[in-house]
Design a protein around this nucleic acid. Sequence first.
DNA 1: GCGTCCAGGTCTACC
DNA 2: GGTAGACCTGGACGC
Length: 306
Amino acid sequence: MRLDMISTTLHIPLGGQFGFWQTVNSHGWCALVPFDVDKSEQRLGRLLELQNGTLVRCSLHRRSSNLTAELKSAGKITKAEKDEVRRQLTECLRLDEDLSEFYTEARRRPHYRWIARQRAGRLLRAPTVFEDVVKMICTTNCSWALTESMVGNLVRNLGTPFDNGVRSFPSPQALAQVTEKYLRTHIRTGYRSPYLLELATRIAEGDLKIEHWRSSTLSSEELFEEARSVKGMGTYAAGNILKLLGRYDYLGLDSWVRAKFYELHKKGRRVSDKTIERHYASFGKWKGLFFWLEMTREWYDRKFPF
DNA sequence: GCGTCCAGGTCTACC
DNA sequence: GGTAGACCTGGACGC
């Protein structure tokens, strides 16, 4: 479908702490639709769905001390819609998250000073917790290629169409409308299908309010347990979802980071998860972030992999 | 082209 | 509380 698009530009002032390209490439999310990346231009693309259903395609890049967002939509964007775009982008790029305390901790430790220098530590997230949780479940027990396939199928089959084949991430309501068989056959989510369906149905029916998690006053332990109560979210998935909520108390171990830890700290020898936990215990509430950045440091030293 | 094996987290049943 | 086996997909490999 081709629509007559209206373009407009939004400028968002950035603090000195903010590393745009570092945030975009902080983990694999930028490679999962409806995000897309243009490496040569250092741009992040994203189709946003606003509360009133309006779709806005954003192309983001850094220009001096501003984030420039080039917006395209089927009609003229109102001021209220622009404000919502700004809010959603602030959520995705964690522009409101204050990492001063984390950087002070990093500067105190010679091995981690590079983190503050690089302005690393902001982890890209989706506009909604729902999208983050669905994607996290789609990373479990499979290769990255399969994650890309499952998320691509979800967006292609259940997302709202925009322009030129681009689609939004499906809402809980859209996901809740299909059957487990449909998910297995068309989305290829396998045994995860009943988990995704249950999650979407609970949210659509108002039984589970995961969008509150980002502003929750619960302790990290309580929030971790609440995340664990979602079927399909084990210790790995819940630990990493907490990082996307701004809580870094958990490591979120998977086979890739374990292997990286063995390589960096144990000359390739396997050790127990408890040993890894002990290694980072002194980092307190920041341990998950120090851990992830140490495991991915080479991404910052050379090119990012996504 | 077909069959087999394997890697990857989580859940459930069982001890 | 700890452990074994099932779940499902796609890629690698051998024939």
